[in-house]
């Protein structure tokens, strides 16, 4: 028995959530294998934020590292939740799309290149509104193309979570990995409360928010793949497992009948109890997890 096994796990564990985007991306890659592309010193910043008296960031909140993970060529794209809530603007979106397209190009030319997306994002950057929305549509188009060749793994660690249009990006990924501190949804609780009233969603009800959006629930109901501890090593190992398995037999966002039937069976006369979805939905997901290399 090694010494490590008698030390409680939380003592030796390195928090992933506490890392900035750049450090998160690095923590997943083989040491010494990666290079950052279009990094901060290239200074491609948002032209739209300063016009609105908002300071830009030199990497526009999007970190792109190209290298290997367990020997597999991979591009890791990490959004920085600390800058404009990880929102997608013209530049951050273009960086994502370009990196994904280049991974597709390499994959089509005999060098299979997977993508790992670290999504901490509220979705469209409202200060760049239509270019942000367009960028998300383009990121999705690029993922659809890459996904034919190599897996696209989304990691949502927290604490921002993954919301808005970027939740669709998670939805079309090959795999979604989450921690208990992560949330995933199209509209956050505040937005629902604003648009549909407090009786629809009380955004001060923390327990309800976690019951609906939290990683445990999303994995429990089968719309995300693995629930992980906030531990850099554990998350890195889970990413490696996904890359090793390769493409799923069928992507979750192509299982139309399964989910259409699930929706048809819901009682919509009242709110849906999250726990019932864990019970009724999850066991039907087994197929996605038996991947083919």
């Amino acid at each position: 028995m090694s010494v490590a096994t008698v030390i409680p796990a939380f003592v030796t564990r390195e928090s992933f959530i506490e890392l900035e985007a750049r450090d998160r991306a690095q923590a997943l890659m083989d040491p010494g294998s990666w290079r950052e592309l279009v990094g901060p010193f290239d200074r491609i910043e948002s032209p739209w934020l300063p016009m609105q008296s908002i300071a830009p960031q030199s990497d526009d909140g999007c970190v792109v590292l190209k290298g290997t993970i367990a020997g597999q060529a991979t591009v890791v794209i990490a959004l920085e939740g600390g800058f404009q809530a990880g929102s997608i603007g013209e530049v951050s979106g273009a960086k994502m799309t370009a990196a994904l397209d280049l991974a597709t190009h390499d994959s089509e030319n005999g060098r299979k290149t997977a993508a790992v997306l670290l999504l901490e994002t509220g979705g469209v950057r409202l200060q760049e509104a239509n270019l942000g929305l367009a960028a998300i549509a383009e990121v999705m188009a690029s993922i659809f193309a890459l996904r034919q060749h190599a897996p696209v793994v989304t990691v949502i660690a927290g604490t921002v979570g993954c919301f808005g249009g970027m939740s669709l990006v998670a939805g079309i990924s090959s795999y979604i990995l989450m921690t208990r501190e992560a949330r995933l949804g199209l509209n956050g609780a505040e937005v629902i409360e604003q648009e549909s009233g407090i009786e629809e969603f009380d955004s001060s009800d923390r327990a309800l928010i976690w019951a609906v959006f939290g990683g445990e629930q999303r994995v429990g109901m089968g719309v995300a793949d693995e629930l992980l501890q906030d531990d850099a090593k554990e998350i890195a190992a889970a990413v490696q497992r996904c890359l090793k398995v390769g493409l799923p037999v069928v992507h979750r966002s192509q299982q139309i009948d399964l989910y259409r039937d699930g929706i048809a069976a819901l009682d919509t006369s009242q709110q849906i109890e999250p726990l019932t979805l864990r019970k009724n939905w999850n066991n039907k997901q087994a197929k996605t997890k038996e991947g083919s290399a």
Partner: peptide, 11 residues
């Protein structure tokens, strides 16, 4: 390169 351009912060 250090820091994040979050509220009350800088890079």
């Amino acid at each position: 390169h250090v820091g994040i351009v979050g509220s009350g912060d800088m890079e």
